[in-house]
């Protein structure tokens, strides 16, 4: 038995060096000065001026989550209730397939669609109407987030709904529940773990994105991810960047912990 445990040793060493220690370095950078290297709180207090950006990132990510849930739930339900297993598999694959293509390119394709001289506006001009301001605003950023992360909502929802015992639905109907009541009292409560897992799987990448906001947004839609990226790649203040990463990380882990508590740990199994 002892030798079997040793099999995990390389992994544990690897994770210590490349996951735990790097996070320690992030904490170290967050609390030291960029020039003198002395301990300081100025990076953390410096974040205060970015409060608006933090709130905006959270707000846009929450809206995206909500939209993903609203359109993702019916889709997942539809797929999960197909009588033939092969139809279910086909639809599942169709939802997953776009994720295999670089999200950078798919986002660029949206820019091509929505741009002022893009495909949609060209069509509108052909009809003799005024072009619409479709890109470089909050709406376009939310659209980009929903587009990129919608499969992350649908897939866990599907795997929960497909496991719901259909006899429960029939029992509720026999007892006189209408469609709305069946949904509210049977299907919805039983899909809570899927909702929670989908919600976190959409929220985490959405709140920390930087590519989507750069391509589909404008200077007014700078998000946390953009600020962190610029601290490491252009402005070069890794200490401030580390402090912001630390805050972002704590925020995400707190959010996940609350969510898990919400579902009494049921969400753990779903992937």
């Amino acid at each position: 038995m002892k030798t079997r445990k040793l099999l995990a040793a390389p992994y544990i060493v690897w994770m210590c060096i490349f996951t735990v220690i790097p996070l320690g370095i992030v904490v170290y950078y967050a609390f030291t000065d960029s020039i003198t290297g002395a301990l300081t709180l100025s990076n953390i207090t410096g974040i205060a001026s970015y409060t608006g950006i933090f709130l905006k990132s959270i707000w846009l990510a929450l809206i995206s989550c909500a939209i993903c849930l609203i359109i993702g739930f019916p889709t997942a339900h539809f797929i999960a209730t197909r009588p033939k297993e092969s139809t279910q598999k086909l639809l599942y694959m169709l939802i997953m397939l776009p994720m295999c293509i670089s999200f950078l390119l798919r986002t660029l394709a949206w820019v091509a669609l929505l741009d002022d001289t893009g495909i949609i506006n060209n069509a509108i001009r052909l009809l003799g109407m005024k072009p619409l301001p479709l890109v470089r605003n909050n709406g376009a950023v939310v659209l980009g987030m929903v587009y990129n992360y919608l499969p992350y909502m649908i897939l866990p929802l599907y795997s929960v709904i497909v496991k719901i015992d259909h006899r429960l639905v029939e029992a509720a109907e026999d007892l006189g529940a209408n469609h709305g009541q069946v949904f509210r009292h049977v299907i919805l409560p039983l899909s809570v773990p899927g909702i929670i897992s989908g919600f976190t799987m959409v929220f985490v990448p959405a709140v920390s994105t930087f590519y989507i906001s750069q391509k589909l947004g404008s200077s007014g839609t700078t998000l946390i991810g953009d600020v962190i990226e610029s601290q490491f790649k252009t402005a070069y203040n890794p200490n401030l960047g580390a402090a912001m990463s630390l805050v972002l990380m704590i925020m995400v882990f707190a959010c996940v912990a609350i969510m898990n508590r919400f579902s009494d740990g049921e969400a753990e199994v779903i992937m």
């Binding site: 490349f18 790097p22 996070l23 992030v26 985490v204 990463s245 972002l248 990380m249």
Partner: peptide, 12 residues
């Protein structure tokens, strides 16, 4: 978030 993993490894 991926960006935090990326940043932490870059610092390492």
């Amino acid at each position: 978030p991926e960006i935090v993993t990326g940043v932490s490894l870059a610092l390492l």
